[in-house]
């Protein structure tokens, strides 16, 4: 008879394992995951043409190649949607699945448990979106397109770290509320709305512009713009700085917040 000791790495390994096995056993789902970024590209292109012809769109956004920007932006958007869906929806999905109590029973505090569970999503979801966008980027820009997408992957990972922290907080809140699906499902559209993926942040109402300052996806979009534009490196460095800061802030914030959530969940139950 043994006493089980579980570390952060054990949970990360377990989540990687289930993530990979899920896609391996669901080829159709994997195929759909590759197609979605293209659907998003079509949506973005459609929105772009609302501004006029592609040159006007490029000028407004301040990018050199509008198509390349659309490829990058759709990759950012899809990665964000995946992460929010997977991390914020983690507790909700497991509640529906009946696996939640067994995940709560892992001998580890809830904050650590949810943070470690988010890591495979942070790394693998953008990888799927980036792999999906790569052929188009290489077709349009050749080697430059490849470099751009590879750089974008690094930027997305950096951007997804704070987003995962935010999503973990939402995942925790989902446990304490009965309106869980409303919270989880409204998060992704809101994040995309204020991130500047669909149109420049500058045309948003002032309040939403203010909110967008604390939304990590906005800075990933800024990085995507920098990579697809001829502008200087200032915007790029500012975005990287903001994301690094947010990654620390949001992830550190999860610990005290989720300790409170865990206590509340144990008082009221999680179902």
């Amino acid at each position: 008879m043994k006493v089980s000791y579980v570390g952060f790495i054990d949970v990360v390994r377990a989540e990687f394992y289930s993530y990979i096995r899920f896609y391996k056993n669901n080829r159709a789902f994997l195929f759909a995951a590759f197609i979605w970024p293209y659907l998003m590209m079509m949506l973005l292109l459609g929105l772009g043409y609302l501004f006029g012809d592609p040159r006007v769109y490029a000028e407004r956004l301040g990018v050199r190649s509008p198509v390349l920007y659309v490829v990058s932006a759709s990759t950012v958007a899809m990665s964000s949607v995946f992460i929010i869906d997977e991390v914020a929806g983690y507790t909700l999905y497991n509640r529906w699945n009946g696996t939640l109590p067994y995940l709560i029973l892992v001998p580890m505090p809830l904050s650590k448990r949810l943070l470690s569970a988010s890591i495979p999503s942070v790394l693998l979801s953008p990888a799927i979106s980036v792999a999906s966008a790569l052929p188009v980027a290489v077709y349009i820009e050749g080697l430059r397109g490849f470099v751009l997408v590879a750089s974008l992957y690094a930027a997305i990972i950096l951007g997804m770290l704070p987003l995962a922290g935010l999503s973990v907080i939402v995942a925790g809140l989902v446990l304490t509320t009965r309106e869980e699906s409303n919270i989880a499902s409204s998060l992704a559209p809101f994040m995309l709305l204020v991130s500047g993926v669909f149109y420049p942040v500058t045309i948003l109402p002032r309040v939403l512009q203010g909110v967008s300052v604390v939304v990590p996806v906005r800075y990933v979009v800024d990085i995507a713009k920098s990579l697809a534009s001829t502008t200087g490196a200032g915007q790029l460095y500012a975005a990287i700085y903001a994301l690094t800061l947010m990654a620390f802030a949001y992830n550190l914030l999860t610990v005290p917040l989720l300790s409170g959530v865990e206590a509340r969940v144990r008082i009221h139950g999680f179902e």
Binding site: S4, Y5, V6, G7, D10, V11, R13, A14, Y17, S18, R21, F22, N25, N26, N97, G98, T99, P101, Y102, L103, L105, V106
Partner: peptide, 27 residues
């Protein structure tokens, strides 16, 4: 712990894969 025998596993994983996952979660 067994709380319900009807569900509590991932539908798109095999029995062995499910068990491996939960074993990893136990270190």
């Amino acid at each position: 712990v067994v709380l319900s025998v009807e569900r509590g596993f991932f539908w798109k994983l095999t029995g062995r894969e499910n068990l491996r996952y939960f074993a990893m979660l136990r270190g």
